[in-house]
Amino acid sequence: MSAKSPKSETPKSEPPKSETPDPEGPGIVWRRNLPVWVVLMALLALSTWAAYWPYGRIDTAIGFGIAGAKTALVALVFMQLKHASGLVRIVAACGLFWAAILFTLTLADVLSRMANR
């Protein structure tokens, strides 16, 4: 069973109103996603190596930059947001909003501890 395919098989009942491109064969799926995965692994290796660089604050910037590159790769290529409709993009952005809840309230704790002198 091609269990690892990230793209959905056509459901058994009537075809859905799909807003993404037509369902593709497994070959096309692997050819798009496998390079994405390889690049992600390469960026992981790069960020692991960069974590040991002694250049001070630029290291953090580099870390964020690599994370941004990975996010863009996943979002635009793997999730095909380049070709997606506005509604799908908004839903994808909700994930970022939810992560922002975590960051905002956690930082509210950490920063107000620091400010509390």
Partner: peptide, 14 residues
Amino acid sequence: NVPGGVRERSPAMV
């Protein structure tokens, strides 16, 4: 030469 750069550590809760 400390890796990761210097930063303010999380302070005591006061």
